[in-house]
């Protein structure tokens, strides 16, 4: 299988490569439109800040390329947030694969921000969640979130807010948590993205 990881200035690509390698897959890190178009699967990781990431994608012309991809596409963390219409992080217009905006956590003082650590995902019956056990804990690190919407297939609660932890629309998937850092649960979800969807 030909897997492409979108190369842009929002790091931690190595963790994704390591997780894929543990599953027996190799991936190519690329920002070449041709390679992205030809891949069987595209993974869009991300740790960083929305406006800087969007500026980079636009400069490279990648915003249009990503939006028009037809194969299964998975955004992770910031990658998922960039797939919304708009992010409150530095008021940034985003790629718009999902019909929803990304907003900042506003929580009572006792809730720390970022939402950092292990939390549970409540999942629907999407094939991305095939073969998962009952306990569905995933590792999150984020200060902004995508509210629940029509495209939500997995949700998580923090500080009284139930937000989208997994989104799906057509060929586009997004995870707010880091599957590459979420132990067996994360590896199963990555494996499903490669083999079940």
């Amino acid at each position: 299988m030909n897997i492409a990881i979108v190369k842009y200035n929002a790091g931690n690509i190595r963790s994704v490569l390591c997780a894929l390698s543990r599953l027996g897959y190799e991936a190519k890190v690329t920002d070449d439109p041709k390679e992205l178009n030809e891949a069987d699967r595209v993974i869009f990781p991300g740790v960083g800040e929305a406006s800087t990431a969007m500026a980079y994608l636009k400069e490279k012309g990648l915003d249009e390329v990503l939006r028009n991809l037809k194969q299964p596409f998975l955004g992770i963390c910031l990658g998922m947030q960039l797939m919304s219409k708009f992010s409150e992080e530095h008021d940034t217009p985003c790629l718009g694969m999902f019909d929803v905006d990304c907003v900042k956590f506003v929580l009572p003082k006792e809730y720390k921000i970022p939402h950092m650590g292990w939390n549970t995902i409540t999942c629907n019956d999407d094939s991305l969640f095939a073969n998962l056990k009952e306990e569905r804990w995933a590792y999150f690190v984020h200060s902004y979130y995508v509210p629940k919407c029509e495209q939500t297939i997995g949700s998580t609660e923090y500080g009284g807010i139930e937000f989208s932890s997994v989104l799906h629309k057509d060929n586009f998937y997004g995870c707010q948590f880091h599957p590459e850092k979420s132990g067996d649960v994360g590896e199963t979800i990555l494996k499903n993205f490669l083999e079940e969807v």
Partner: peptide, 30 residues
Amino acid sequence: IADHIGIPFTVGGGIRTEDDVAALLDSGAD
């Protein structure tokens, strides 16, 4: 470590410069 484990990890000790940090993060530390 990054190759083998699928949970987050922190590294510390002897970090002096931004380049030290970049090298550790590039190596796969979270």
